[in-house]
Design a protein around this nucleic acid. Sequence first.
RNA 1: CAAGUAAAUCGCCUUAUCGCUCUGCAUGAAAGUGUAGGGAGGAAAGUCCGAACACCAAAGUGCAACAUAGUGGUUAAUGGCCACCGGUCGUGAGAUUAGGAAAAGUGCAACAGAAAGCAAGUACAGGUUAAGCUGUAGUGAAAUCAGGUAAACUCUAUGUGGUGCAAUGUCAUGUAUACCAACGUUUGAGGGCUGCACGUUCGAUUGUUGGAGGGUAGACAGCUAAAGUGUAUUGGUAACAAUGCAUUCAGAUAAAUGAUAAGGGUCACGCCUUGGCGCGAUACAGAAUUCGGCUUAUAGAUUUACUUGUAAA
RNA 2: GACUCGGUAGCUCAGCUGGUAGAGCAUAACACUUUUAAUGUUAGGGUCCUGGGUUCGAGCCCCAGCCGGGUCA
Length: 125
Amino acid sequence: MKFTFGKKDKLKSQKLIERLFLEGKSVSAYPLRLVYLQTNFDDGSTLKTGVSVSKRNFKSAVHRNRIKRLLRESYRLNKRLYFNNITTSYALMILYIGKDKPDYDTVNTKMKTVLSSFLEKISRD
RNA sequence: CAAGUAAAUCGCCUUAUCGCUCUGCAUGAAAGUGUAGGGAGGAAAGUCCGAACACCAAAGUGCAACAUAGUGGUUAAUGGCCACCGGUCGUGAGAUUAGGAAAAGUGCAACAGAAAGCAAGUACAGGUUAAGCUGUAGUGAAAUCAGGUAAACUCUAUGUGGUGCAAUGUCAUGUAUACCAACGUUUGAGGGCUGCACGUUCGAUUGUUGGAGGGUAGACAGCUAAAGUGUAUUGGUAACAAUGCAUUCAGAUAAAUGAUAAGGGUCACGCCUUGGCGCGAUACAGAAUUCGGCUUAUAGAUUUACUUGUAAA
RNA sequence: GACUCGGUAGCUCAGCUGGUAGAGCAUAACACUUUUAAUGUUAGGGUCCUGGGUUCGAGCCCCAGCCGGGUCA
């Protein structure tokens, strides 16, 4: 798996996102929360991931964009370490639930903990 | 030199590594891969005006409603902009200004005051047969003249059909013209997107409201070459216009335009001291159909013109 | 994207066509009571969301902004 995060790896279907929030389970490591749902995709990709920041906590579009870019970047760099040997398909949504603007280091370390706890949880099930 | 006024411009840079999105070309059955190039703003914001464009009864008539309000110009258009006149503020450069009509009518004016209409008349002085008959004072934003007030109703002039890219068209997927209640309906219900009326047209597999539910919410076009941008000349006080030359400059859709590291620039502060060191800051803000304006936010930097004060020549 | 409603005391709200801003609850003091609660009397508390304008005078009228609700596929 490469360090890429292209169109096929992004979660885009509105229907699937609705189902994800209705039926999905979640793990969290403040200020991040990961919502996941086991499913199947038609185009052959194993994981589809989206990121989201609440408009309630961050009014400025610039700040929201900045946080989403940080989340996407840290997911892109870390996903090879965790999902290289994964077989089942999942839809993921990573939410930022904090109220302060983060820097890259905290997002990166928290991303690692939330991904590892996700792996632990699905291997237990 | 100090303080200020107006107008205009810019608003971080370089390198390395790893990425995102669009377009062209090559390759491939396809997914993709390789390669070349493009990729946020002066406000992209607020959605306050004006248009383009699209659809909606022949885009009908009247009323209502709303907007604007000195004069002239400018523009595709405007409630924007420019020039001039008048008012207000400032020593000044300048700033600001919804600035038509009170002899069409209706209303309003607290407190004070005799009185802010339709009825009266305070104090002092004068004056007369008599009398608010005359003058002054006093109250108040305004006091005998009928005035003020229209960002009070109103009148006058001018303008406005409605809805908005979630418009609209094509394709795909799925379904319920079902059920319950009330009211109405070939004696014309109801629809054709408007607040009302009229007119016109369609019109019987029946309409409206409420309840309780079912389904879709994908793709493509619209979608970016345009009242475009830069520059020069000419006309005009100016807004702006005309002509020549050059140029092609985002198109995403849970929504790209980035992340990390190093170095530099600019500004403020501190230290030594006159160019180094340290530390901090580097704004407001992120396209979503497209333009022209307006309004609001904005660290800091630059340029031009001018005013006032002080000093020197 | 298109519309619409509101902002007044610590809280919930009045204030309708402009003339010194009120009510209830809450707070404080006093009285009553052995004490508290309840009750009674009194007092304090307001940039009327912000900034301009019209007016002699704006909570109210006009303009611009800020904040918070709600509706429409």
